[in-house]
Design a protein around this nucleic acid. Structure first.
Ligand SMILES: [Zn+2]
Ligand SMILES: [Zn+2]
Ligand SMILES: [Zn+2]
Ligand SMILES: [Zn+2]
Lengths: 131, 131
DNA sequence: CAATTGATGTAATAACATTACATTCCAATT
DNA sequence: AATTGGAATGTAATGTTATTACATCAATTG
């Protein structure tokens, strides 16, 4: 887990995500970075690919959006499966790890000789503040 | 949980999904139903919406595709969270329910006063046959 | 019959993501 | 200093997934 130096584009994208209260789509990020010189979706997607690889950003599959990792210093994606709650009202995302769930999923896969790649766990609903 | 009569379009879409060995995108379904008179994406999406509502079809969020429920007679979506393994090589999907996982997720949500809506659990990887 | 409701047909558009290709940057090696 | 090779970037075009808008049709019901 070496400290990773980000390129300008990667830094800009991460900065936008880090300052957002809710997940952002790639195109929303693009719009926010037009003034910084971004012109095309690919600039965003390329930066996101790297940030995902570095474990600094998560992709929320169920809403086609991206969020900055809440624990960027802990090499989050190396600590097993990350699960999320996503408030459909305010967009608030909470990130958590649960070893019991992880063991159950790994066990199920192992029992069937299924080689696990990326696992998605996302709970959509309403957060305490929005209830 | 009354027996549901499907409309013509709903029946056609379900039939295509039921006979497929792997998940299908809405546009793939559309292509397969051109000969049956389908002309526009909305015809597929509308049928899918209903089939999802009836619990006869599942949407795989991580691959933007749809699959027929493996247990259509058991009112699948009423029996808690459905989890999936998805083979990225052959497309094979396995559907399972795990009460331990479900209890953990429900517990996490309850502890935070998060009102749970739909929950997604999807494991992408390689199935035994493709390893 | 009139009114309501759910389903359908069609076109247009929006939203999300990738391919292709040319160029630039930068560090390592000669 | 010049060369070179890999990573990153810029840009345009295209591909894929999903929704909005509006007109029409069919079954139900009071
Ligand atoms: Zn994280
Ligand atoms: Zn909220
Ligand atoms: Zn099912
Ligand atoms: Zn397979």
């Amino acid at each position: 887990m070496t400290t990773q130096t980000l390129t300008r584009n990667q830094g800009l994208v991460l900065d936008v995500l880090s300052h957002s209260q809710s997940p952002l789509s790639a195109y929303t990020i693009l719009d926010k970075l037009r003034d910084s010189g971004f012109r095309a979706p690919l600039q965003v997607y390329r930066a996101l690919d790297k940030l995902l690889e570095f474990g600094l950003v998560h992709r929320l599959e169920s809403i086609n959006a991206f969020v900055a990792c809440a624990h960027p210093d802990e090499d989050c994606h190396a600590h097993g499966i990350t699960a999320f709650t996503i408030c459909e009202t305010c967009g608030k995302v909470t990130e958590f790890h649960d070893h019991v769930i992880e063991d159950r999923l790994k066990g199920f896969a192992r029992d069937r000789n299924f080689k696990t790649g990326k696992t998605t766990i996302e709970i959509r609903g309403t957060c305490a503040g929005c209830a």
